[in-house]
């Protein structure tokens, strides 16, 4: 297999050219059949280089999963083309399957009724891994994903967090060049998400002395993207509306963090205390106990804001929310429309 890599026509891991997918929604009504065309992916042209970690984000129905299905050869593009690891995915789906790993967050590739370790054994055979290589890789993943405690348990009895770690082991067992993650952290608690991110970061940077692994991640979770992906591709209704880094995205839409502060004693106005900082403040109840402060993540830290507020009033409680990805995308789309 190593011989084939050097003969690859391209050094790009993913290369799409005006990739488009249309679905026909046929409807038989009284006036005969009417077809409406839904363009799920619209003229997507992107390239991803080896070792990159790219966040592919957008609202529900933006075309993320459709794109992934075309990249993996499960879905045929309507027009345009895509090359994955230098291969036409539709024609070489099975060859490609040996070189990429996919985690569909909402689906399982594990054998539901069997212990987790059986899935890893079956996948080893499916990928035709030599026994020694399989053993070494399996042991690495068991250790790094901390699977030992539940290897013997049937997959159906694993918690969601445990199952997702199992899914990652399954997708990475054959050491794919490209790892595609479709909503890998959806439904996980904070701690599980964090562990998964640490692991994925290591994989991307080349854990266990391996080469860096290219990663494409779709998510709704801005934290995932912020922690894992230096590069973002944002799609809306099938179109690429942004391709670049975080700072550029935040600058473009002015996405804000939201800090809600409850004070011990009412204060009518906090604007004075925050003068000079690039923030907006608003009293959100009549009594003056609750105030909402919005600010851009890159421009000022939450700590600086809190310092100023606590200088004039005692803080009883607070909550901080990150820019909501749906909101960012909505604003981005509004700004690019």
């Amino acid at each position: 297999m190593t011989g084939e890599k050097s003969t690859g026509a391209t050094d790009l891991v993913i290369e799409s050219r005006v990739l488009t997918k249309e679905f026909r929604r046929g409807r038989s009504g009284r006036r005969g059949r009417t077809d409406s065309v839904l363009r799920a992916v619209d003229s997507l042209t992107v390239t991803i280089r080896p070792g990159e970690a790219v966040g592919y984000i957008g609202a529900n129905g933006a075309g993320k999963s459709t794109t992934i299905k075309m990249i993996t050869g499960i879905l045929k593009p309507s027009t345009g083309s895509v090359l994955t690891c230098g291969l036409d995915p539709m024609r070489h789906r099975r060859d490609l399957a040996r070189r990429i790993g996919v985690v569909f967050g909402q689906r399982s590739q594990l054998w539901w009724d069997l212990p987790l370790q059986e899935s890893l054994r079956i996948l080893g055979a499916i990928h035709a891994l030599p026994p020694t290589r399989w053993q070494r890789r399996r042991d690495q993943l068991v250790e790094r994903l901390d699977l030992a405690a539940f290897l013997d348990r049937p997959v159906r009895r694993l918690s969601l967090g445990e199952r997702m770690r199992g899914e990652l082991a399954a997708a990475l067992l054959h050491e794919p060049e490209l790892l595609i993650l479709d909503e890998p952290t959806v439904g996980l608690d904070v701690l599980s998400k964090e562990r998964l991110r640490v692991f994925l970061r290591e994989e991307n940077q080349g854990a266990d002395g391996g080469p860096p692994r290219t990663m494409l991640l779709t998510t709704h979770d801005m934290d995932d993207v912020q922690r894992l992906c230096p590069r973002l591709i944002v799609v809306d209704t099938g179109r690429c509306v942004y391709d670049g880094d975080h700072a550029g995205l935040v600058a473009r839409v002015g996405a804000n963090r939201l800090l809600v502060i409850d004070l011990v004693d009412p204060v009518q106005e906090l604007a004075g205390a925050l003068a000079g900082l690039p923030v907006a403040v608003e009293r959100t109840d009549d009594a003056g106990l609750r105030h909402t402060i919005t600010f851009a993540p890159g421009e000022v830290s939450a700590g600086a804001v809190l310092d100023r507020v606590s200088a004039v009033a005692a803080i009883h409680d607070l909550s901080l929310s990150e820019p909501d990805i749906e909101e960012v995308v909505r604003r981005l789309y509004a700004s690019s429309a």
Partner: peptide
């Protein structure tokens, strides 16, 4: 029906 077939198709086996 559920789309889980995608997982089967993303494997290097017939």
């Amino acid at each position: 029906r559920t789309g889980d077939i995608a997982v089967d198709l993303a494997r290097p086996v017939d």
